[in-house]
């Protein structure tokens, strides 16, 4: 029994979940490398915590529904379809802006247009390299849209995604990671979700490529 289906939702085996988690890990690693090149500073990444969370619990995972965050949202097209969201606690986002623009840490307190475009550029790099890693792993063309940036309470940035997927999926692939830039720690969260057909496609590609065996459930 490789894939059990209820006719509505894709059910995943532990092994398939592990493979998806591995994708998350590789993607984050790739993003860190690109970030390091971009800001020309030492960047290392803590081993990311990758898991699946239920949609209704997501804002709890990022520090509560009213936590102020900067979110980067983009849509994924190509051979698979889906969407992705990066969330940084406000403080971390502003520190990243300081680092990119070579200002002393703590300078940025609110985003002006210049900061916003710097942050968009950063988002392009992070999301692009994350999705590239995914694409390479799956040997599939994955195209990110331009990133969109907003700063507000975490739950308010997420609810339209929860709404869009409330009809089909109920879990999100969630990666939480700490970035150390020149020894300074910045927290960030990343989530990606694929529509049901794409998830099936990804799983079947993983089976082809890595010969995942059914765990004999």
């Amino acid at each position: 029994m490789e894939e059990k289906e209820t006719g509505q939702k894709v059910k995943l085996t532990s092994l398939e979940l592990d493979a998806l988690k591995e994708m998350g890990n590789i993607g984050t690693g790739n993003a860190a490398t690109s970030l390091s090149k971009f800001i020309n500073k030492n960047v290392d990444m803590n081993f990311p915590e990758t898991k699946f969370v239920h949609v209704s619990k997501f804002s709890e995972t990022v520090g509560g529904p009213e936590k102020m965050v900067v979110g980067i949202y983009l849509q994924i097209s190509g051979e698979v379809h889906g969407e992705a969201m990066f969330l940084f606690p406000e403080k971390g986002a502003y520190e990243l802006i300081d680092l990119i623009l070579s200002k002393p840490l703590g300078t940025t307190k609110r985003m002006d247009d210049m900061d916003k475009s710097a942050f968009m550029e950063l988002s392009n790099i992070l999301t692009g390299s994350f999705l590239n890693a995914l694409g390479n792993m799956l040997e599939a063309k994955i195209l990110p849209s331009v990133p969109h940036v907003a700063a507000d309470m975490a739950q308010t940035l997420l609810d339209f995604i929860l709404i869009k997927i409330s009809k089909c999926a109920d879990t999100l692939l969630y990666v939480k990671t700490g970035v150390n830039v020149e020894g300074h720690k910045i927290d960030g969260e990343f989530t990606v979700l694929f529509d049901q057909d794409s998830l099936k496609k990804i799983i079947s590609k993983m089976h082809d490529k890595y010969g995942l065996e059914s765990p004999g459930a």
Binding site: P65, L158, D159, F160, I163
Partner: peptide
């Protein structure tokens, strides 16, 4: 209380 309304 409805917490964190975006599109909702």
């Amino acid at each position: 209380i409805s917490v964190g309304l975006g599109s909702c």
